[in-house]
């Protein structure tokens, strides 16, 4: 697949790149390059139009006001919705995850319109912030190993009938609904509350995004020993009391 290229779009780093989630873009870029793919990465600021012909779009977490501004600009732009219509894969984290839903409660306490790309709605929890390591079992249809990540949010995200939970948490709060769900996905759009960044902690999710984008079933193997060592350490740390 050496003549294959991958167009990777990192959405709104000026507003939604506060919690290290640009690591997700770095991990996808690196792992695609290791498979011999020519990766074209574009960082699109919120005063630029979203390209509609990307293969994978990544969106990160941000603070509450930037989240509201990002949602306004993405709704006005419309490019992400067109990209999904064109078959793009979208992977979103925290504030970005909420924006992909139908609506969320913003920093002013009002309801912001989302992009409607995931069948979820988000509100703000009254309880303490969810902060800490998370361990979960990913939806078995995705055939992936355990989910490890770090959550830091106050959101509560309810899933509608066409969104499936990305994982069931063993430790941590995930969607905050109390039913043990974490994140959401449909065929091409993914959302999670996990930082870490989540694709550095779960490189096989990064590979899944690449496989979906290229419509292939397998990728050449990579040397994942440091990823595996980190996963083992974090999973052990999460399951052992401090």
């Amino acid at each position: 697949m050496s003549d294959t290229s991958l167009r990777l779009v990192w959405v709104y780093p000026d507003l939604l790149s506060t919690y290290g989630d640009q690591g997700n873009a770095l991990v996808v870029e690196r792992r695609a390059q290791q498979r011999g793919l020519a990766v074209q990465r574009e960082d699109i600021r919120s005063d630029q139009p979203i390209p509609t012909s990307g293969d994978i779009y990544l969106i990160g977490g941000g603070e509450d006001r930037p989240q509201r501004l990002a949602a306004e600009r993405l709704v006005r732009d419309g490019g992400l919705n067109r990209a999904v219509d064109n078959g793009a894969i979208i992977f979103s984290v925290c504030a970005g995850y909420q924006i992909l839903g139908r609506e969320f409660v913003n920093d002013l306490g009002e309801t912001s319109q989302g992009l409607g790309l995931l069948d979820v709605t988000s509100t703000r929890g009254e309880a303490d912030r969810c902060v800490g390591d998370v361990l979960g079992d990913i939806d078995e249809r995705l055939n992936l190993p355990q989910l490890t990540g770090f959550e830091n949010h106050q959101g509560i995200t309810h899933l509608g009938p066409t969104a499936r939970p990305l994982a069931r948490v063993r430790l941590g709060r995930g969607n905050g609904t109390g039913d043990g769900t974490e994140g959401a996905w449909n065929d091409t759009v993914f959302g999670t509350y996990m930082h870490g960044p989540v694709l550095a902690r779960n490189p096989q999710i990064a590979d899944l995004l690449v496989k979906l984008a290229l419509d292939v079933n397998a990728l050449p193997p990579t040397d994942d020993r440091w990823y595996e060592a980190l996963r083992e350490e974090r999973i052990t740390a999460a399951t052992q009391p401090a």
Binding site: Y19, G20, Q22, A200
Partner: peptide, 30 residues
Amino acid sequence: DTSWLWDVDYSRLAGHPICVIGDRKLDLAV
């Protein structure tokens, strides 16, 4: 949370021999 390591541009250390230690040396390794 060690996610902030990904907001640091470590490619600037190219050419230096690098040794990694600390409680979270595996995060640094990745």
